[in-house]
Design a protein around this nucleic acid. Structure first.
Lengths: 199, 199
DNA sequence: ACCTGAACACCGTTCAAGT
DNA sequence: ACCTGAACACCGTTCAAGT
Protein backbone atom coordinates (compact mmCIF):
# COMPACT_ATOMS: atom_id res chain seq x y z
CA UNK A 1 0.00 0.00 0.00
CA UNK A 2 2.85 2.33 0.80
CA UNK A 3 5.40 3.19 -1.83
CA UNK A 4 7.90 0.39 -1.56
CA UNK A 5 10.90 1.57 0.36
CA UNK A 6 12.92 -1.02 2.20
CA UNK A 7 13.68 1.52 4.88
CA UNK A 8 11.25 1.89 7.76
CA UNK A 9 10.20 5.17 9.40
CA UNK A 10 8.95 6.03 12.88
CA UNK A 11 5.61 7.02 11.38
CA UNK A 12 5.18 3.63 9.73
CA UNK A 13 5.95 1.86 12.97
CA UNK A 14 3.42 3.93 14.89
CA UNK A 15 0.94 3.38 12.08
CA UNK A 16 0.95 -0.40 12.23
CA UNK A 17 1.01 -0.22 16.02
CA UNK A 18 -2.23 1.76 15.99
CA UNK A 19 -3.75 -0.78 13.60
CA UNK A 20 -2.77 -3.66 15.85
CA UNK A 21 -4.17 -1.81 18.85
CA UNK A 22 -7.45 -1.29 17.03
CA UNK A 23 -7.69 -4.98 16.22
CA UNK A 24 -6.45 -6.64 19.38
CA UNK A 25 -5.87 -4.11 22.13
CA UNK A 26 -2.71 -3.83 24.17
CA UNK A 27 -2.33 -7.60 24.01
CA UNK A 28 -1.62 -7.38 20.28
CA UNK A 29 0.96 -4.63 20.71
CA UNK A 30 4.06 -6.85 20.90
CA UNK A 31 7.34 -5.77 19.36
CA UNK A 32 7.54 -9.02 17.39
CA UNK A 33 4.09 -8.58 15.90
CA UNK A 34 4.75 -4.97 14.93
CA UNK A 35 8.03 -6.00 13.35
CA UNK A 36 6.61 -8.95 11.43
CA UNK A 37 3.77 -6.76 10.17
CA UNK A 38 6.46 -4.49 8.74
CA UNK A 39 8.46 -7.42 7.36
CA UNK A 40 11.41 -6.69 9.59
CA UNK A 41 13.25 -8.14 12.59
CA UNK A 42 12.16 -7.11 16.11
CA UNK A 43 15.55 -5.66 16.81
CA UNK A 44 15.11 -3.22 13.92
CA UNK A 45 12.52 -1.33 15.96
CA UNK A 46 15.14 -0.53 18.56
CA UNK A 47 17.01 1.62 16.12
CA UNK A 48 13.96 3.92 15.88
CA UNK A 49 12.79 3.76 19.50
CA UNK A 50 14.79 3.38 22.70
CA UNK A 51 12.24 0.97 24.13
CA UNK A 52 8.62 -0.11 24.03
CA UNK A 53 7.45 2.61 26.42
CA UNK A 54 8.57 5.32 24.02
CA UNK A 55 6.78 3.60 21.17
CA UNK A 56 3.62 3.37 23.26
CA UNK A 57 3.96 7.06 24.01
CA UNK A 58 3.92 7.86 20.31
CA UNK A 59 0.88 5.61 19.86
CA UNK A 60 -0.89 7.42 22.70
CA UNK A 61 -0.16 10.75 21.04
CA UNK A 62 -1.77 9.51 17.86
CA UNK A 63 -4.82 8.20 19.71
CA UNK A 64 -5.64 11.47 21.46
CA UNK A 65 -4.50 13.77 18.67
CA UNK A 66 -8.07 14.43 17.43
CA UNK A 67 -9.08 16.05 20.71
CA UNK A 68 -6.59 18.84 20.30
CA UNK A 69 -8.51 21.08 17.93
CA UNK A 70 -8.98 24.87 17.78
CA UNK A 71 -11.75 26.04 20.07
CA UNK A 72 -15.01 27.33 18.72
CA UNK A 73 -15.53 24.38 16.43
CA UNK A 74 -18.22 23.12 18.77
CA UNK A 75 -21.18 25.12 20.03
CA UNK A 76 -21.27 23.22 23.33
CA UNK A 77 -19.52 24.50 26.42
CA UNK A 78 -15.87 23.93 25.55
CA UNK A 79 -14.71 21.97 28.58
CA UNK A 80 -17.64 19.57 28.60
CA UNK A 81 -17.28 19.01 24.88
CA UNK A 82 -13.57 18.41 25.26
CA UNK A 83 -13.97 15.72 27.91
CA UNK A 84 -16.71 14.05 25.86
CA UNK A 85 -14.46 14.08 22.81
CA UNK A 86 -11.58 12.65 24.82
CA UNK A 87 -13.76 9.80 26.02
CA UNK A 88 -14.96 9.20 22.50
CA UNK A 89 -11.48 8.86 21.07
CA UNK A 90 -10.38 6.54 23.87
CA UNK A 91 -13.36 4.30 23.26
CA UNK A 92 -12.36 3.90 19.61
CA UNK A 93 -9.56 1.52 20.58
CA UNK A 94 -9.67 -1.43 22.96
CA UNK A 95 -7.51 -0.58 25.99
CA UNK A 96 -7.32 2.98 24.68
CA UNK A 97 -7.73 4.54 28.12
CA UNK A 98 -5.23 2.24 29.79
CA UNK A 99 -2.67 2.92 27.10
CA UNK A 100 -3.01 6.70 27.37
CA UNK A 101 -3.02 6.63 31.17
CA UNK A 102 0.23 4.67 31.31
CA UNK A 103 1.93 6.76 28.64
CA UNK A 104 0.89 9.97 30.36
CA UNK A 105 2.05 8.79 33.76
CA UNK A 106 5.53 8.38 32.30
CA UNK A 107 5.15 11.73 30.52
CA UNK A 108 5.87 9.94 27.25
CA UNK A 109 2.58 10.72 25.55
CA UNK A 110 -0.68 12.68 25.57
CA UNK A 111 1.01 15.76 26.97
CA UNK A 112 -0.55 18.04 24.36
CA UNK A 113 -4.03 16.76 25.05
CA UNK A 114 -3.57 17.40 28.76
CA UNK A 115 -2.21 20.88 28.16
CA UNK A 116 -5.15 21.61 25.92
CA UNK A 117 -7.47 20.76 28.78
CA UNK A 118 -5.65 23.17 31.08
CA UNK A 119 -5.83 25.89 28.42
CA UNK A 120 -9.55 25.42 27.86
CA UNK A 121 -10.21 25.69 31.56
CA UNK A 122 -8.28 28.94 31.68
CA UNK A 123 -10.15 30.35 28.71
CA UNK A 124 -13.37 29.41 30.45
CA UNK A 125 -12.42 31.66 33.34
CA UNK A 126 -10.32 29.69 35.78
CA UNK A 127 -7.20 31.27 37.18
CA UNK A 128 -3.98 29.34 36.51
CA UNK A 129 -3.47 27.36 39.70
CA UNK A 130 -7.15 26.52 39.88
CA UNK A 131 -7.26 25.44 36.25
CA UNK A 132 -4.41 23.03 36.88
CA UNK A 133 -6.21 21.41 39.79
CA UNK A 134 -9.44 21.12 37.83
CA UNK A 135 -7.61 19.70 34.80
CA UNK A 136 -5.96 17.09 37.00
CA UNK A 137 -9.32 16.01 38.41
CA UNK A 138 -11.03 15.89 35.02
CA UNK A 139 -8.14 14.07 33.35
CA UNK A 140 -7.73 11.35 35.94
CA UNK A 141 -11.47 10.83 36.16
CA UNK A 142 -11.92 10.44 32.41
CA UNK A 143 -9.03 8.00 32.09
CA UNK A 144 -10.07 6.00 35.14
CA UNK A 145 -13.71 5.90 34.16
CA UNK A 146 -13.08 4.84 30.57
CA UNK A 147 -10.52 2.24 31.65
CA UNK A 148 -13.24 0.76 33.82
CA UNK A 149 -15.74 0.91 30.99
CA UNK A 150 -13.44 -0.88 28.56
CA UNK A 151 -12.38 -3.52 31.05
CA UNK A 152 -16.02 -4.38 31.67
CA UNK A 153 -16.71 -4.49 27.99
CA UNK A 154 -13.90 -7.02 27.60
CA UNK A 155 -15.07 -9.08 30.55
CA UNK A 156 -18.59 -9.10 29.16
CA UNK A 157 -17.35 -10.34 25.80
CA UNK A 158 -15.75 -13.29 27.55
CA UNK A 159 -19.13 -14.08 29.02
CA UNK A 160 -17.82 -13.46 32.50
CA UNK A 161 -20.59 -10.98 33.14
CA UNK A 162 -24.11 -10.56 31.88
CA UNK A 163 -25.04 -7.05 30.72
CA UNK A 164 -26.74 -6.06 34.00
CA UNK A 165 -30.35 -5.62 32.93
CA UNK A 166 -30.62 -1.90 32.25
CA UNK A 167 -33.56 -1.25 34.53
CA UNK A 168 -33.29 1.77 36.76
CA UNK A 169 -29.58 1.82 36.01
CA UNK A 170 -28.09 4.89 34.38
CA UNK A 171 -26.27 4.35 31.11
CA UNK A 172 -22.51 4.72 31.01
CA UNK A 173 -22.98 7.88 28.98
CA UNK A 174 -25.29 9.47 31.52
CA UNK A 175 -23.11 8.57 34.46
CA UNK A 176 -20.13 10.06 32.68
CA UNK A 177 -21.87 13.33 31.92
CA UNK A 178 -23.20 13.66 35.44
CA UNK A 179 -19.76 13.12 36.88
CA UNK A 180 -18.24 15.77 34.62
CA UNK A 181 -21.00 18.17 35.63
CA UNK A 182 -20.30 17.47 39.28
CA UNK A 183 -16.64 18.32 38.81
CA UNK A 184 -17.41 21.46 36.84
CA UNK A 185 -19.86 22.49 39.54
CA UNK A 186 -16.92 22.45 41.93
CA UNK A 187 -15.07 24.87 39.72
CA UNK A 188 -16.69 28.29 39.92
CA UNK A 189 -17.28 28.19 36.19
CA UNK A 190 -20.16 25.75 36.31
CA UNK A 191 -21.56 26.27 32.85
CA UNK A 192 -23.39 23.04 33.27
CA UNK A 193 -26.65 22.89 35.13
CA UNK A 194 -25.98 21.67 38.67
CA UNK A 195 -26.70 17.95 39.04
CA UNK A 196 -30.43 17.45 39.46
CA UNK A 197 -30.01 14.73 42.06
CA UNK A 198 -28.38 16.95 44.63
CA UNK A 199 -29.92 15.78 47.86
CA UNK B 1 8.77 -18.19 61.18
CA UNK B 2 5.48 -19.94 60.57
CA UNK B 3 4.73 -23.25 62.19
CA UNK B 4 6.18 -25.74 59.78
CA UNK B 5 3.41 -27.14 57.67
CA UNK B 6 4.34 -28.44 54.27
CA UNK B 7 0.94 -27.37 53.00
CA UNK B 8 0.49 -23.83 51.72
CA UNK B 9 -2.55 -21.61 52.31
CA UNK B 10 -4.05 -18.73 50.34
CA UNK B 11 -3.20 -16.40 53.19
CA UNK B 12 0.46 -17.37 53.09
CA UNK B 13 0.60 -16.81 49.35
CA UNK B 14 -0.96 -13.37 49.67
CA UNK B 15 1.38 -12.63 52.54
CA UNK B 16 4.60 -13.18 50.65
CA UNK B 17 3.09 -11.44 47.63
CA UNK B 18 2.55 -8.31 49.73
CA UNK B 19 6.12 -8.54 51.01
CA UNK B 20 7.48 -8.81 47.48
CA UNK B 21 5.33 -5.86 46.41
CA UNK B 22 6.68 -3.80 49.27
CA UNK B 23 10.25 -4.57 48.27
CA UNK B 24 10.18 -4.43 44.49
CA UNK B 25 6.79 -3.22 43.27
CA UNK B 26 4.71 -4.96 40.64
CA UNK B 27 7.89 -6.00 38.86
CA UNK B 28 8.76 -8.32 41.74
CA UNK B 29 5.30 -9.89 41.78
CA UNK B 30 6.06 -12.86 39.52
CA UNK B 31 4.49 -16.22 40.10
CA UNK B 32 7.92 -17.90 40.11
CA UNK B 33 9.27 -15.54 42.73
CA UNK B 34 6.27 -15.96 44.97
CA UNK B 35 6.55 -19.72 44.62
CA UNK B 36 10.28 -19.88 45.28
CA UNK B 37 9.83 -17.66 48.34
CA UNK B 38 7.41 -20.28 49.62
CA UNK B 39 9.70 -23.15 48.65
CA UNK B 40 7.25 -24.54 46.18
CA UNK B 41 6.80 -24.95 42.41
CA UNK B 42 5.08 -22.19 40.41
CA UNK B 43 2.36 -24.55 39.34
CA UNK B 44 1.41 -25.13 42.97
CA UNK B 45 -0.01 -21.61 43.14
CA UNK B 46 -2.57 -22.52 40.49
CA UNK B 47 -4.25 -24.93 42.81
CA UNK B 48 -5.05 -22.02 45.18
CA UNK B 49 -5.76 -19.32 42.57
CA UNK B 50 -7.26 -19.62 39.10
CA UNK B 51 -4.78 -17.14 37.69
CA UNK B 52 -2.51 -14.22 38.53
CA UNK B 53 -5.28 -11.63 38.28
CA UNK B 54 -7.18 -13.29 41.12
CA UNK B 55 -4.06 -13.38 43.24
CA UNK B 56 -3.47 -9.68 42.54
CA UNK B 57 -7.06 -9.02 43.55
CA UNK B 58 -6.44 -10.59 46.93
CA UNK B 59 -3.26 -8.55 47.32
CA UNK B 60 -5.18 -5.37 46.48
CA UNK B 61 -7.76 -6.24 49.13
CA UNK B 62 -4.99 -6.54 51.70
CA UNK B 63 -3.42 -3.24 50.65
CA UNK B 64 -6.58 -1.17 51.05
CA UNK B 65 -8.00 -3.09 54.00
CA UNK B 66 -6.86 -0.46 56.56
CA UNK B 67 -9.06 2.25 55.02
CA UNK B 68 -12.22 0.34 55.80
CA UNK B 69 -12.66 1.27 59.45
CA UNK B 70 -15.72 2.19 61.50
CA UNK B 71 -16.59 5.87 61.18
CA UNK B 72 -16.08 8.27 64.04
CA UNK B 73 -12.52 7.17 64.68
CA UNK B 74 -11.30 10.41 63.14
CA UNK B 75 -12.43 13.90 64.07
CA UNK B 76 -11.86 15.23 60.55
CA UNK B 77 -14.67 15.37 58.00
CA UNK B 78 -15.15 11.70 57.17
CA UNK B 79 -14.91 11.79 53.39
CA UNK B 80 -11.81 13.95 53.26
CA UNK B 81 -10.16 11.79 55.89
CA UNK B 82 -11.09 8.65 54.01
CA UNK B 83 -9.55 9.80 50.75
CA UNK B 84 -6.41 10.93 52.56
CA UNK B 85 -6.18 7.56 54.27
CA UNK B 86 -6.66 5.75 50.97
CA UNK B 87 -3.84 7.75 49.39
CA UNK B 88 -1.66 7.03 52.40
CA UNK B 89 -2.11 3.28 52.18
CA UNK B 90 -1.47 3.25 48.43
CA UNK B 91 1.76 5.18 48.92
CA UNK B 92 3.02 2.53 51.34
CA UNK B 93 3.76 0.15 48.45
CA UNK B 94 5.52 0.89 45.17
CA UNK B 95 2.95 0.61 42.37
CA UNK B 96 0.26 0.40 45.04
CA UNK B 97 -2.15 2.63 43.14
CA UNK B 98 -1.64 0.87 39.81
CA UNK B 99 -2.19 -2.51 41.43
CA UNK B 100 -5.44 -1.45 43.10
CA UNK B 101 -6.70 0.33 39.99
CA UNK B 102 -6.21 -2.75 37.84
CA UNK B 103 -7.69 -5.13 40.38
CA UNK B 104 -10.71 -2.88 40.87
CA UNK B 105 -11.28 -2.49 37.14
CA UNK B 106 -11.67 -6.27 36.93
CA UNK B 107 -13.80 -6.20 40.08
CA UNK B 108 -11.37 -8.67 41.63
CA UNK B 109 -10.27 -6.48 44.52
CA UNK B 110 -10.82 -3.32 46.57
CA UNK B 111 -14.58 -3.63 46.29
CA UNK B 112 -15.09 -3.13 50.02
CA UNK B 113 -12.99 0.02 50.06
CA UNK B 114 -15.00 1.47 47.19
CA UNK B 115 -18.29 0.57 48.85
CA UNK B 116 -17.10 2.19 52.04
CA UNK B 117 -16.54 5.42 50.13
CA UNK B 118 -20.09 5.31 48.77
CA UNK B 119 -21.44 4.68 52.26
CA UNK B 120 -19.50 7.55 53.80
CA UNK B 121 -20.82 9.92 51.16
CA UNK B 122 -24.35 8.83 51.92
CA UNK B 123 -23.86 9.28 55.65
CA UNK B 124 -22.54 12.74 54.91
CA UNK B 125 -25.84 13.64 53.32
CA UNK B 126 -25.72 12.66 49.66
CA UNK B 127 -28.68 10.86 48.17
CA UNK B 128 -27.91 7.43 46.69
CA UNK B 129 -27.49 8.18 42.99
CA UNK B 130 -25.52 11.31 43.73
CA UNK B 131 -23.28 9.52 46.21
CA UNK B 132 -22.43 6.95 43.57
CA UNK B 133 -21.41 9.61 41.07
CA UNK B 134 -19.31 11.42 43.67
CA UNK B 135 -17.67 8.18 44.80
CA UNK B 136 -16.75 7.35 41.22
CA UNK B 137 -15.13 10.75 40.74
CA UNK B 138 -13.23 10.63 44.02
CA UNK B 139 -12.10 7.03 43.53
CA UNK B 140 -10.79 7.44 40.00
CA UNK B 141 -9.09 10.69 40.88
CA UNK B 142 -7.28 9.26 43.89
CA UNK B 143 -6.08 6.19 42.00
CA UNK B 144 -5.02 8.19 38.95
CA UNK B 145 -3.31 10.88 40.96
CA UNK B 146 -1.35 8.48 43.16
CA UNK B 147 -0.38 6.32 40.17
CA UNK B 148 1.10 9.45 38.65
CA UNK B 149 2.84 10.33 41.90
CA UNK B 150 4.41 6.89 42.21
CA UNK B 151 5.47 6.70 38.59
CA UNK B 152 7.28 10.00 38.97
CA UNK B 153 8.91 8.83 42.14
CA UNK B 154 10.25 5.79 40.29
CA UNK B 155 11.43 7.85 37.33
CA UNK B 156 13.18 10.25 39.68
CA UNK B 157 14.99 7.38 41.38
CA UNK B 158 16.37 6.31 38.02
CA UNK B 159 17.76 9.81 37.64
CA UNK B 160 15.53 10.40 34.64
CA UNK B 161 14.13 13.51 36.26
CA UNK B 162 15.48 16.04 38.72
CA UNK B 163 13.16 16.86 41.64
CA UNK B 164 11.76 20.07 40.05
CA UNK B 165 13.03 22.76 42.40
CA UNK B 166 10.16 23.29 44.79
CA UNK B 167 9.85 27.04 44.29
CA UNK B 168 6.35 28.35 43.79
CA UNK B 169 5.24 24.80 43.09
CA UNK B 170 2.62 23.26 45.33
CA UNK B 171 3.57 20.06 47.10
CA UNK B 172 1.93 16.82 46.03
CA UNK B 173 0.08 16.80 49.33
CA UNK B 174 -1.36 20.28 48.83
CA UNK B 175 -2.40 19.63 45.26
CA UNK B 176 -4.11 16.45 46.35
CA UNK B 177 -6.06 18.14 49.12
CA UNK B 178 -7.11 21.01 46.88
CA UNK B 179 -8.37 18.60 44.26
CA UNK B 180 -10.41 16.67 46.81
CA UNK B 181 -11.86 19.95 48.08
CA UNK B 182 -12.80 20.92 44.55
CA UNK B 183 -14.67 17.66 44.06
CA UNK B 184 -16.42 17.93 47.40
CA UNK B 185 -17.38 21.50 46.55
CA UNK B 186 -19.22 20.05 43.56
CA UNK B 187 -21.22 17.83 45.87
CA UNK B 188 -23.68 19.89 47.86
CA UNK B 189 -22.10 18.65 51.05
CA UNK B 190 -19.00 20.80 50.84
CA UNK B 191 -17.76 20.43 54.36
CA UNK B 192 -14.44 21.66 53.12
CA UNK B 193 -13.79 25.33 52.73
CA UNK B 194 -14.23 26.23 49.06
CA UNK B 195 -10.91 26.42 47.22
CA UNK B 196 -9.29 29.76 47.94
CA UNK B 197 -8.04 30.18 44.40
CA UNK B 198 -11.46 30.26 42.83
CA UNK B 199 -11.01 32.84 40.14
C1' DA C 1 -6.59 -32.79 48.37
C1' DC C 2 -2.37 -30.82 47.24
C1' DC C 3 1.88 -30.54 44.84
C1' DT C 4 5.96 -31.82 41.37
C1' DG C 5 8.26 -31.81 36.85
C1' DA C 6 8.36 -30.54 32.67
C1' DA C 7 6.87 -28.48 28.96
C1' DC C 8 4.32 -24.78 25.87
C1' DA C 9 3.96 -20.46 24.00
C1' DC C 10 5.17 -16.45 24.58
C1' DC C 11 7.69 -11.77 26.15
C1' DG C 12 11.34 -7.16 25.89
C1' DT C 13 16.09 -6.14 25.10
C1' DT C 14 21.01 -6.44 23.60
C1' DC C 15 24.68 -6.72 20.44
C1' DA C 16 28.02 -8.24 17.23
C1' DA C 17 27.90 -8.44 12.53
C1' DG C 18 26.46 -7.30 8.03
C1' DT C 19 25.32 -3.72 4.04
C1' DA D 1 22.66 4.99 8.74
C1' DC D 2 19.89 1.15 9.10
C1' DC D 3 18.99 -3.64 9.67
C1' DT D 4 19.86 -9.00 10.46
C1' DG D 5 20.62 -13.13 13.32
C1' DA D 6 20.93 -14.98 17.28
C1' DA D 7 21.00 -15.11 21.80
C1' DC D 8 19.77 -13.75 26.92
C1' DA D 9 16.82 -13.59 30.61
C1' DC D 10 12.73 -13.67 31.61
C1' DC D 11 7.20 -14.34 31.65
C1' DG D 12 1.99 -16.85 32.76
C1' DT D 13 -0.31 -21.17 32.20
C1' DT D 14 -1.26 -26.20 31.55
C1' DC D 15 -1.24 -30.93 32.67
C1' DA D 16 0.02 -35.57 33.40
C1' DA D 17 1.84 -37.75 37.16
C1' DG D 18 2.97 -38.43 41.83
C1' DT D 19 1.68 -38.72 47.10
Amino acid sequence: MDLMTDRITREQIVGVAVELLARGGLHALAMRRIASELGVQQSALYWHFDNKQQLLGAVADRVVAPVVVPTGTTKDTPVEALTARLRGELLRYPDGAELVATAFAFRLGANDAYQHLVDELERAGSARPHAEIAASVLWHFVLGYVTDEQQHRQAAELGAIQPTTDEATLSADDRFTQAIDLILAGTSLSEASPPATLR
